[in-house]
Nucleic acid binder design. Structure first.
Lengths: 243, 243
DNA sequence: GCAGAACTGACAACACCGTTGACAACGTCG
DNA sequence: CGACGTTGTCAACGGTGTTGTCAGTTCTGC
């Protein structure tokens, strides 16, 4: 075991062109990439708490201390992982046709975000509130702001709705990811809480709960996400019409 | 130092009526309440990583091992803290007039959630995806489901929009809380990332970003939250009209 | 070619974490 | 009084992020 193949990592990159001997600096970034790859596989296999420097070193057949020559600390590694996540989202978005209605572009972005964030829930939980300041993040922000500009909103309103859109999507993705990346035992405990206690509430004090008990557990996170995204898009349409 | 006064804890409770000698069981729950209180003050003073069993014991002038006689493990303590948070939200909501339009009830709930969750960001981050199965949670769910029933939605749609509303609010609160409860240094690093790198992007490749650079940092989390909440409420209104 | 610098790796150590067990003091009830 | 449940202290276990040291290896400049 303990190969550094990183099978589950997104957007595997070969890191350049020819078979030229890589310089030191290139080798360094290459190993950083490998570490980021391993972080993805490790986090998704072992959960949020499983992504530790020691285990990551183990995954790469290397002492944990070596990682501190690639990243100043664990936080910097997490930011690198976060950048890679954004890069994967950009790849999932693909090319945006110039004449695509801005609504569909937003839907495309929301869909890509959901796909990637739910593919790596542990990573999402660890990074959803961070700012990388990296190139991929910049490109994604630019794409989104350009889309909102196309909607015809005035700059101030565009920024307000841009952040509403982004944070709503991110918050929901993180919430869903947090749910699906609890420890299995805790997850079980929380999940059964619904049927365990809610089904036994006195019907006279909790009529609404009793009336909806069956439906409650059948709402999928994705349906809820889509509903929220559409609600925000509709709000933007109304704001754009009014201005 | 290390008083157990818990000044910042919400919904301080005196724990009952008379000066009757408390039974053993009452004393036990009393000390549990004290621990929960201390957990609030500690978490908000020291941040997410500062809420440890050892420091919590220190806060109560007691060895950490004692806490394991009050709660099976740290997770159970966290759930108790979560229940108390919900209790505080219920208190902030107050009495709902029977004839209040359901939209205003939802606004009231959203506002109370925001107020409480941002008052205790560290706690929010630690508990936002958990289910307590406790009485306060049950009462809050009942209140919300009853409100959605008043909107006239069919049961299935009511549940879908209920969960959309709740998860959107929770996700945004958690996102905001996560931002404001990063370590100060990390927080600084992330915050300055915007002005540090975004202000220096080439204007030809990032026109939209450059055009909105000033506005970007001036959007408050609260404004964004209100916008999202109104968007969801509007979506519910349309769904209720259509049905 | 070869010395010196730069890099890479392994190991031990530090302080801290959640958690457990053993053991002493205390009050209460029979 | 003795037995017992409760409360508290202490030490320990395995784990965490992180740092420093020391040995090799690899590259660079002369």
């Amino acid at each position: 075991m303990a190969k550094n193949t990183a099978t589950a990592a997104p957007t595997e990159r070969s890191g350049g062109d020819a078979a030229r001997q890589p310089t030191r600096r290139e080798r360094r970034t290459l190993r950083q990439e490998a570490a980021v790859n391993a972080a993805f596989t490790l986090a998704e296999r072992e959960g949020v708490a499983g992504l530790t420097m020691r285990r990551l070193g183990q995954e790469l057949d290397v002492d944990a201390a070596v990682l501190y020559r690639l990243f100043r600390d664990k936080d910097e590694l997490l930011l690198a992982v976060c950048e890679r996540t954004i890069e994967t989202i950009l790849g999932e978005i693909g090319e945006v046709p110039g004449d695509e209605p801005w609504q569909d572009t937003l839907r495309r972005i929301a869909e890509a975000t959901w796909q990637v964030q739910t593919r790596f829930p542990a990573i999402t939980v660890l990074t959803f509130a961070r700012t990388t300041g990296g190139p991929c993040e910049a490109r994604l922000v630019e794409l989104q702001l350009a889309t909102f500009t196309r909607s015809g909103l005035a700059p101030a309103a565009a920024v307000l709705y841009y952040r509403t859109f982004v944070d709503t999507a991110l918050g929901l993705c993180a919430h869903s990811a947090a749910l699906s990346s609890l420890d299995p035992e805790v997850r079980e405990k929380d999940a059964t809480a619904w049927t365990r206690v809610y089904a036994h509430l006195p019907a006279d004090e909790y009529p609404a709960t009793r009336a909806h008990i069956d439906q409650l557990s059948s709402v999928s996170q994705k349906a809820l996400y889509d509903t929220a995204v559409e609600a925000v898009i509709a709000a933007i349409e109304r704001a754009a019409d009014g201005s």
